[in-house]
Amino acid sequence: MLAVKDLEITFSEKNSIFKAVRKVSFSVQAGEILGIVGESGSGKSMTALALTGLLPPEAKVCGSMSFAGKTMHFEDNSQWQGLRGSKIGIVFQDPAACLNPLKTVGKQVAEPLILHKGLTPKEAEVETIRLFSALGIEPAVQRIHHYPHQLSGGQQQRVMLAAAIACKPMLLIADEPTTALDVTVQAQILRLLHEYVHNHSAALLLISHDLGVIAQLADEVLVMCGGTIVEKGSVYQIMQKPLHPYTKLLLASLPRLDAPLKLPLVANEGLTAEGGCVFAARCPHYRAICLEKEPPTKLLAEGRQTACHIL
């Protein structure tokens, strides 16, 4: 349903060029949950913003994506306007900052309904109440008149989710949707995301730095590092048989009850891997070739790939 091809995002300042995302390609099917995992700065949030045409204007984007039978080029920013909020819904990390403090939450959720579905404000209010009840924002009839600061963090994120799914988008993008929330609330939000995908056979792009969150929800997983996809596979393959040293590092950093935490902390000091593998400077197994050549993406099986010289 969604196929992204050769997405590249660069930021250039006066005399330096920074590639936030380098030639990334992937696809998601309807009813599928694709997890993107990686540390901060790995380019996963930039990817999400690119898919919605919301990158800051100074970013230069190349590549194309085909979505819902249409092929769009990232260079042309005008095509996303009609998709946002109607065909593509987005949930961001910090719900408190993502809600306009001066408008009631009901009004904000009603906006896409009025804009995309052509509902009257009255009809939109009824629909908003229905959405709020479905997402557990109770008592919905009163909640719609509340201002963001009157809600808890979990409730605020539910409101953001309500706005994102109000028009039943085919693609939902959740960028660190639970990072700012308490652990108990995290699970509830994740369950709501899962329910939506399940009930509407929509696709979900779940972006997180937390493998634990990804493991709970995702079907397929992309591991990103330094703006490239270093490994891809089903959630079982990634969790049970990680191939890339970076994925192994991420897994090792998960706290476990049955074994002591052992983090292979490596800093290959003085190494510059300009033009080589993005992970070489921190890789415990790096070789000379890693510093010189970008590792090619090896397709190991259907839906299973990695990019590493050593394997």
């Binding site: 306007q81 109607s86 900052a97 306009n100 904000q108 906006e111």
Partner: peptide, 17 residues
């Protein structure tokens, strides 16, 4: 520069709205 502006755009509002 605040986040809710981006969130509003994500709901499909035009720049003017």
């Amino acid at each position: 520069n605040l986040d809710f502006v981006r969130a509003a755009k994500a709901r499909g509002l035009t720049d003017k709205q």
